[in-house]
Nucleic acid binder design. Structure first.
Length: 392
RNA sequence: GUGGGCGUAGCUCAGUUGGUUAGAGCGCCAGGUUGUGGUCCUGGAGGUCGCGGGUUCGAACCCCGUCGCUCACCCCA
């Protein structure tokens, strides 16, 4: 699907210099400060196992300076040093895309639309798309000042924890789920109202564009994401089939300053990441069953000769495109038949000393229950015989 | 980083107030059927009771530590 949108695949290393993540995600963010798997190599360099997908892609982009716009998708493991629980693991897999080189609202729309298409395609239905704009640096700083000023007069109404830390990392407070905090922030100044004209206009274009192509979004002024690099558009897909503690099945946003922060020339960017394990949980919670591809073998070769003719027989069957399995270790016919039955194969092909002496193979339909249904054919005809019996 | 729960056979689990040789179901192996699966019957293999220390005549059981898993919080996917 990503190819349909013009993305090419990118693979980045499993670990990077720790600075890539510290500078990208923000050293004060929860993830960078205490959730990274950090280690030293023999040369004393400090690395971190990739905790998210965006920073490495941007690093690679800077290093190779491809032509713009650069559109890449990835499927990669991600690591967070934290206490695992339902829907949250130390190692999980993220499916994501990144677009670098343009701040066109059309790219925001395309990116969000892609993720939406993807969820639709896998059968997910009970989810919502939350969207917000954080503005550029100045907008955000201005807003934080306004928010702080407002909060300073309502400190006592905040939740216990935030009464202590309300004036540091103030934006995060919008994320607090405690009713007290929610109420206070709901009544307070809202982020979108404090955007500068260009940012505000950009945001409107994104929202309008999405509604034009039928992607329903919920304007969520309190949506502030955990990485420091976000600017302007931020979005999150939340599943209504999962507990709210880990209902985010995908999210992302614009990061127009990230390339600069990582030492490249100023380049706008946007992307999303989606946790595959959590997506699977959401699908399960919705009762969506994945179409199971049949992986049962078609024939099972039972060989009780001394000379192991199964190897040759299996090879010719497999060369003809037939899924053929067999038993090993020269077990008794009874034992091999049991394995054949469990394998789910439609036919058992029996070769014992008797058959082998006359160059034949006995075909036994494992669906039937009578031995009289067995037929013997010449070994050189086995492939065509099996193919015709399988209906090909 | 914080708080709870759990670690006993390959799997799911039981195990009494601490008491001899630690059990069940499923799975696995073999025999009944000397060349034939799925059902049935019979038998069998398989366990340093997570690990280390302590208490005790005696520990799967009690105490301490440790590691792992799990659920929740924080935060994120």
């Amino acid at each position: 699907m990503a190819y349909r949108y013009g993305f090419s695949m990118i693979v980045t290393p499993t670990f990077e210099d720790v600075g890539v993540f510290n500078r990208g995600i923000g050293e004060n963010s929860e993830v960078a400060s205490k959730e990274m798997y950090v280690f030293e190599d023999r040369g004393g360099r400090t690395f971190a196992l990739r905790p998210e997908g965006t920073a490495p892609v941007v690093r690679a982009f800077i290093q190779h300076s491809p032509t713009l716009p650069f559109k890449a998708w990835y499927f990669t493991p991600a690591f967070r040093y934290e206490r695992p629980q339902k829907g949250r693991f130390r190692e999980h897999h993220q499916l994501g895309v990144e677009v670098l080189g343009s701040e066109d609202a059309a790219i925001d729309i395309e990116t969000i639309s892609l993720l939406n298409d993807f969820f639709q395609a896998v059968g997910l239905r009970k989810y919502r798309v939350l969207i917000n704009s954080m503005g550029h640096d100045e907008c955000r700083q201005n807003y934080v000042e306004v928010l702080k000023a407002y909060l300073s007069t309502h400190v006592s109404e905040l939740c216990e924890e935030h009464q202590k830390v309300w004036d540091q990392n103030t934006l995060r407070l919008l994320d607090c789920k405690k009713p007290s905090c929610v109420e206070v922030t709901n009544k307070g100044p809202q982020l979108p109202a404090h955007l500068c004209a260009p940012c505000s206009e950009h945001f409107s274009s994104v929202v309008l564009g999405l509604s034009t192509i039928g992607v329903k979004c919920e304007l969520t002024p309190r949506l502030v994401r955990g990485f420091d690099y976000y600017t302007r558009t931020t979005f999150e897909f939340v599943s209504d089939a999962l507990d709210s503690a880990q209902n985010a099945i995908g999210g992302g946003g614009r990061y127009d300053k990230l390339a600069e922060q990582l030492g490249g020339s100023p380049t706008a960017g946007i992307g999303f990441g989606s946790g595959v394990e959590r997506l699977l949980l959401a699908l399960e919670a919705e009762g969506v069953t994945e179409p199971s591809i049949s992986r049962t073998p078609q024939v099972f070769v039972v060989d009780t000769t001394e000379v192991d003719v199964a190897t040759t027989i299996c090879h010719s069957l497999r060369s003809a495109g037939i899924a053929a399995v067999r038993a090993y270790d020269h077990r008794s016919m009874k034992a091999q038949m049991k394995v054949a039955d469990k394998s789910g194969a439609r036919f058992a092909l029996l070769v014992g000393p008797q058959e082998n002496a006359v160059g034949q193979i006995t075909i036994r339909d494992l669906r039937g229950d009578e031995r009289t249904e067995q037929v013997s054919v010449a070994q050189q005809d086995i492939v065509t015989e099996v193919l015709s019996r399988l209906g090909k």
